[in-house]
Design a protein around this nucleic acid. Structure first.
Length: 421
RNA sequence: GCGAUCGUAGCUCAGUUGGUUAGAGCGCCGGUUUGUGGUACCGGAGGUCGCGGGUUCAACCCCCGUCGAUCGCCCCA
C-alpha cells in the first residue's frame, strides 16, 4: 500500500493568497480604472498562438524566442506557443479580426504570460502583466498619452516615489541600422577585451552590450557611438516632440541613451520605469528592476504580413507592481454572527442573506462550543459582533458595535425581525 | 545553461563538541460543569528531521549523491 504522493506545483508558478492576492487585485483594479480614463478598450486575448506569431515578430535570435518559449505540438502536429508577451498576439488580432477599421485603436488587457526561465525574486515562469497598446497612430502624441497613462497608474498605485521614467529613442529603421553597424565596428575592434557574455552579444545582439553590468565592458560603453549621431532629421523631430509633450504634461523623465530593449521590433521611443538605485523600491524588487517597459514598434505588422502600421505600447509586471504596493489587507468585516445555540441556526440562515442583500459583509460561526463560537467570531474582527442565544427559552441576541449609528440601526432592524434584543 | 545559500510539525522557527523518548509559538481538535465574555486558561492530536548512500558504538548534526526551494548571473515584466 503505497501512499499517494501529492503532486508538486510546477517550478516558477505561484499560488497567490492573502495579502499578496489583495495587492495583485489592487494593481489590476487600479489599472482598469485608469485605462477607462484614457478610453482604452478592453480586449481578451488567447493564451496561446501559433508559434510563428511570436517567432516572426519578436526576432528569431532574441532570448525569448530562442530559449524561453513554452512551445508544443498539438494533436494536428501544429506548433503552438503559450504567449510570452501580449503585443504580438494583439498585432495578429489587429490583422486577422479586421480591427484596422477602428484605427487608431487603443486597447488594454491583462493576464498570464509564460517564459521558460530560472525563477527568482520578481521573476516567474507563469507571470502576469497589464498591457496597453495604441495601434495605427504615427504621431508622437500617442507616445505621450501612453506614457502619461503609465505615469498616472504608478501614482495611483502609490509606487511612483523613487521610480524614474528612463527614455530613449532608437530612431527609425535607417537610424537604427547605421547605429548598429557603428556599434558593431566599435566593439569588434576591442573584442578581446570584452566580457565573455559581451563577445557572445556581439554575434547576436550588439546593442545589448550597452547595458552590460560587467565592469570590463563599461569602460568601452562610455565611449561607444551614440544613437544621437545617427538620428535622421525626422527621427530627431519625433523624439523632440515626445519629450516636449511629456514636459507639457508634467511627466518627469530621464534620458538614457544606452537604453535598448530586448525585442527586435522596437523603433523610435523606448522606455522603462525603473526604481532609483538604493531606493526602497529597488530593494523590494531584488535584481529585477524594470517594472514597466515598452516603446514604439512600427515594423511589427509587416513581420506578420500586414501593411506597415505605426504602433506603440507598454506592459508592466503585476507581481513586481504588487511587491511595491506592499501589504494590503481585505476590507474589515461588517458583521460576524456567533450562533451560540443550535436552535438558532435557522434564524442566522435568514439574517445573514438579508444583511448581505443590504450590502453588509457577513460571516456566520456555527461550529464548536458556544464559547468557542464567540471567540471565533471575535477573531474575525468585525465592526459589528452579534451573539445569538436562547435565554429563558426565548431567542435573543446581544451585540458589540463599532459601526456608525446609522448602519447599526439598519443591522439591528434586520436581526430584530428574527430574534429579540 | 552557470553560481551561491538553504531543506526539522499544516505555518514561522529553536535544537548544545555527534549522546536517552526532537521542542516552542501560531493554527487545528477537546475541555474550562449556560458564560453578556475574551480576543483568556488547561489539555490533546500532529514529525520515517526532503530522499538515498557513507563515516561512527551512536547522525537532525559530519561526508558524498540526488530532488526541491530561495537568491544571483544571463535575459526580462
Amino acid at each position: 500500500m503505497s501512499k499517494v504522493q501529492t503532486p508538486r506545483p510546477i517550478r516558477g508558478t505561484q499560488d497567490i493568497f492573502g495579502a499578496d492576492a489583495e495587492a495583485f487585485a489592487f494593481v489590476v483594479e487600479t489599472f482598469e480604472r485608469v485605462r477607462k480614463l484614457y478610453r482604452f478598450r478592453r480586449v481578451e486575448m488567447p493564451v496561446f498562438e501559433k508559434t510563428e506569431v511570436f517567432a516572426r515578430s519578436l526576432g528569431e535570435t532574441t532570448d525569448v524566442v530562442s530559449k524561453e518559449m513554452y512551445s508544443f505540438d498539438d494533436r494536428g502536429g501544429e506548433s503552438l506557443t503559450l504567449r510570452p508577451e501580449f503585443t504580438a498576439g494583439i498585432a495578429r488580432a489587429y490583422l486577422t479580426e479586421g480591427w484596422q477599421q477602428y484605427a487608431p485603436l487603443k486597447v488594454a488587457t491583462h493576464g498570464p504570460l509564460f517564459r521558460y526561465e530560472r525563477p527568482q525574486k520578481g521573476r516567474y515562469r507563469q507571470f502576469h502583466q497589464i498591457d496597453a497598446e495604441i495601434i495605427g497612430a504615427a504621431e508622437p502624441q500617442a507616445d505621450v498619452e501612453l506614457l502619461c497613462m503609465a505615469d498616472q497608474l504608478l501614482k495611483e498605485l502609490g509606487v511612483d516615489d523613487g521610480v524614474t521614467l528612463q527614455l530613449n529613442t532608437l530612431g527609425d529603421a535607417d537610424s537604427r541600422d547605421s547605429w548598429r553597424a557603428a556599434l558593431l565596428a566599435y566593439f569588434q575592434a576591442v573584442r578581446g577585451e570584452l566580457s565573455e557574455d559581451s563577445q557572445e552579444r556581439l554575434e547576436r545582439n550588439p546593442l545589448r552590450i550597452l547595458d552590460s553590468k560587467d565592469p570590463r565592458d563599461q569602460a568601452f560603453v562610455a565611449d561607444a557611438p551614440k544613437i544621437d549621431e545617427f538620428l535622421t532629421a525626422e527621427a530627431e523631430d519625433f523624439f523632440g516632440a515626445v519629450t516636449a509633450g511629456l514636459d507639457a504634461a508634467g511627466v518627469k523623465w530621464q534620458r538614457l541613451d544606452k537604453l535598448v530593449r530586448g525585442l527586435d521590433y522596437y523603433r523610435h521611443t523606448a522606455f522603462e520605469f525603473v526604481p532609483d538605485e538604493g531606493s526602497v523600491a529597488a530593494n523590494a524588487l531584488g535584481s529585477q528592476s524594470t517594472i514597466l517597459g515598452g516603446g514604439r514598434y512600427d515594423g511589427l505588422m509587416e513581420s506578420l504580413g500586414g501593411a506597415p502600421t505605426p504602433a506603440v505600447g507598454w506592459a508592466a509586471g503585476i507581481e513586481r507592481l504588487a511587491m511595491l504596493v506592499g501589504e494590503r489587507e481585505p476590507e474589515r468585516l461588517d458583521v460576524a454572527i456567533a450562533v451560540e445555540a443550535d436552535e438558532l441556526v435557522a434564524a442566522a440562515a435568514r439574517i445573514a442573506p438579508e444583511l448581505r442583500l443590504s450590502g453588509f459583509s457577513v460571516e456566520v460561526v456555527v461550529t464548536g462550543s458556544g464559547r468557542k463560537r464567540y471567540d471565533k467570531a471575535a477573531k474575525l474582527d468585525p465592526a459589528y459582533l452579534v451573539s445569538l442565544q436562547v435565554r429563558d427559552g426565548l431567542a435573543g441576541y446581544s451585540a458589540r458595535s463599532q459601526i456608525d449609528d446609522n448602519r447599526e440601526t439598519q443591522i439591528e432592524a434586520i436581526i430584530g425581525k428574527h430574534v429579540r434584543l
